[in-house]
Design a protein around this nucleic acid. Structure first.
Lengths: 124, 124
DNA sequence: ATATCTATGTACGTAGCGTATATAGGTATG
DNA sequence: CATACCTATATACGCTACGTACATAGATAT
């Protein structure tokens, strides 16, 4: 049923070309409570605003980058149970950025709405 | 006034980490009428749903990729005025994909809405 | 002649993400 | 005790999307 399509790994253009809300999602969770990577992965894969599933490797990689950027801070926590964990907390700069991103996402949402109005307007 | 922040090129996390609507935007324009790269660049930078500005190189590169993917087709047009242009048309597969993407963008918009409700719910 | 507009393209670098794989401590089961 | 599974973090490789810089070339205007 499908036509010409992709030679490389596009896989029938199955997914909308719009990134996941990984960084905003992590900041939103860390505003509520400090946490570590493994727990964040599970929480992110339960919330409604994450599209599909986030891979563990993606989250760990993103956390390290966000710490480099000063959005979050970590320290090792050697608890009595299980392996040591890297405990993350949001920074003041992270809180500012989250606020800033929320404003940007509001605009982005309106732009998508405009796109859809434009599209459905044509399809009448 | 700014705090710790980035060592690499994050530039104060100025922009929301969500991609532009380049491919959907191109398809939406080509559904209305066939066009060439230079014209598409100018149109894309006038519509309301594109965030910020799209660079010419980005558009040309995207058009070539989209043709490889079978979303659009081109042929050289040697007009009487100015340099030759590559005229693009949307394919049937492109129209299907646009429809598919519109559905995905609707979901994506709702997810962003959910994120914002979650965020503003915390900030009361 | 020179500058500007039209028009397309390549090269290089970065961010975000997926898949595969490595490592290592803790717990449960046979 | 051995083995399997869960917790927990991390690296390597590859791909898409995008920006910046640069290259090329015909057409038009001054």
């Amino acid at each position: 049923m499908c036509k010409g399509k992709s030679e490389h790994t596009n896989e029938g253009s199955a997914s909308v070309p719009l990134e996941k809300l990984t960084q905003p999602g992590i900041l939103l969770l860390l505003v509520k409570d400090k946490s570590h990577g493994y727990e964040l992965i599970q929480k992110l894969n339960q919330v409604e605003y994450i599209d599909g599933e986030l891979e563990a490797a993606t989250v760990y990689r993103t956390l390290r980058r966000m710490e480099q950027d000063g959005l979050i801070e970590s320290r090792w926590e050697h608890g009595e149970f299980g392996p040591a964990r890297r405990q993350y907390e949001i920074t003041d700069y992270g809180r500012e950025t989250l606020k800033h991103w929320a404003g940007g996402l509001k605009s982005r949402m309106k732009q998508i709405e405009t796109f859809l109005e434009n599209y459905y307007g044509l399809m009448d």
